[in-house]
């Protein structure tokens, strides 16, 4: 049990590291949000599961925390992305932009 828990903790740390690298290396905000969201979600799951295996009495609470993270983390990043699109300059390397029509072209024009 201790070994399983340590494997999960290590995996979580690795995912967090990759997420941090992604936030540093990606060229624009949206790609950074993408890397950040995915890595922190799975990283948090792994670390929480690692703690859960170390303390089996906490597993039910940890499942609950995982459910809340799974709901709230993507919502947070969607809202940040939308606010970024509305408030700042758009990235210049876009291949396609369908959101323009949604905001009627009045943002940043």
């Amino acid at each position: 049990m201790a070994i399983i828990s340590q494997i999960f903790l290590l995996l979580g740390a690795v995912f967090y590291l990759l997420g941090g690298l992604g936030i540093l290396r990606m060229p624009d905000t949206f790609d950074r949000i993408q890397a950040g969201t995915k890595a922190t979600t799975l990283g948090a799951f792994s670390i929480l599961l690692g703690v859960g295996f170390a303390q089996p009495g906490w597993l039910l609470k940890i499942v609950l925390i995982i459910i809340f993270i799974a709901i709230s983390n993507p919502i947070g990043s969607s809202v940040i992305a939308k606010a970024t699109y509305k408030s700042y300059e758009k990235p210049t390397n876009l291949k396609r932009d369908d959101i323009k029509e949604l905001f009627g072209g009045e943002i940043n024009e």
Partner: peptide, 18 residues
């Protein structure tokens, strides 16, 4: 994400779609 982050030049081709 790991593959993209660890490659020397990040392969990107971004866009917004509906």
């Amino acid at each position: 994400v790991a593959k993209r982050v660890l490659s020397p030049k990040i392969p990107l081709n971004p866009g917004f779609i509906k």
